[in-house]
Nucleic acid binder design. Structure first.
Length: 313
DNA sequence: CGGCTTTGACCCGCGC
DNA sequence: GCGCGGGTCAAAGCCG
């Protein structure tokens, strides 16, 4: 299948982004979505085409409205991405830096098309890795000299949920699990089962708060979701004061759950949510099969193209 | 039998 | 240079 390939190619973050997440969630979020233009630019870097359809139907969830309509539903999402160069600085500066490195956001897809899918860092790394294991030294040497691994853009967020793998409309195959330092909970690695899709995600529980799941996505899907988690597309997401007001978040991104600002994953620092609100939506999610992971990273084709709840397969 | 998970081994980057 | 931790591979086993 590959209607997919018509979608905008993944952004090329030649600068390796890290899993590191902003630590000042409030500031991070506010800054990240400082204004529409910037917001659009940034998100477009991740393949999120955010052109408003019209006044009543745009590609974002209007928290203002949703909060109003779904008072009681309680998710407060937080997405963040940083680079290794400045893991702790605010996103605004990161954005500037990225723009300086990759060019204006509007050109990003363009500038990146040459890398990413073709030049998949992971693939090259993986193949190099396997090659090393299975081939003679000569080949090994060559492989080792390959291009430096390039990270795909990543999103991370925390979800208050009993289940690790939130349904997000995509199918994932687990390819690894590692013990996390200073945490009793292992970290699981998943890869999208779609043949050509290179999206990966990482799921781990917060050691500070075992009820919180930290999910990180890397890359963007090159295909449509098989289905969509019940309820999520209906707009259960609400903003939260922690983020300083109403912000626009792409539809289809969040699976049911209760969201918190993504923590500093790399060093296990977890930002405590200011407020916890239980959500029936989270329970709903628990009904879903185990391997139906978390939030999707919307692709151009998906944005604005809501897949109604009802499950996949 | 195919798809998926488990799990030990391996590679790589980074900090000391 | 070395050790550690993160990330990935791939063989083996499980399950529908």
């Amino acid at each position: 299948m590959d209607d997919s390939n018509k979608l905008a190619p993944p952004t090329d973050f030649s600068t390796e982004s890290s899993w590191t997440l902003g630590t000042d969630s409030d500031n991070m979020f506010n800054t990240f979505f400082q204004d529409r233009d910037r917001e659009s630019s940034i998100l477009s870097e991740f393949g999120w085409n955010l052109q408003p359809d019209d006044n009543t139907s745009h590609n974002f969830v209007d928290f203002d409205r949703i909060e109003h309509n779904f008072a009681g539903a309680s998710n407060f999402p937080a997405i963040s991405r940083v680079t290794d160069q400045n893991p702790s600085t605010n996103l605004d500066s990161m954005v500037r830096e990225m723009e300086a490195q990759t060019g204006p956001a509007t050109d990003i897809n363009h500038s990146v098309s040459s890398s990413t899918s073709e030049d998949l860092p992971e693939k090259s790394t993986a193949s190099a890795s396997s090659a090393e294991k299975a081939t003679p030294e000569t080949a090994i040497k060559d492989k080792k000299k390959g291009p430096k691994r390039i990270r795909q853009p990543r999103f991370a967020f925390m979800t208050k949920s009993d289940i690790d793998n939130l349904e997000d409309g995509y199918r994932w195959r687990k390819y690894g699990q590692k013990a996390v330092k200073n945490s009793p909970f292992p970290r699981s690695y998943y890869r999208c089962t779609n043949g050509k899709c290179l999206v990966k995600k990482r799921v781990e529980r917060s050691s500070d708060d075992p009820s919180t799941v930290i999910t990180t996505y890397e890359g963007q899907h090159s295909h449509h979701a098989i289905g969509f988690p019940r309820g999520s597309a209906a707009g259960f997401i609400t903003t939260h004061e922690a983020f300083g007001g109403h912000r626009l978040i792409p539809k289809n991104f969040y699976p049911p759950g209760i969201y918190f600002p993504a923590p500093e994953v790399s060093n296990s620092r977890v930002i405590q949510p200011r407020q916890l609100i239980s959500s029936s939506v989270a329970h709903e999610a628990q009904e879903s099969p185990q391997n139906q992971a978390a939030p999707q990273i919307p692709t151009d084709g998906l944005l604005g193209d809501i897949v109604h709840p009802g499950g996949r397969t």
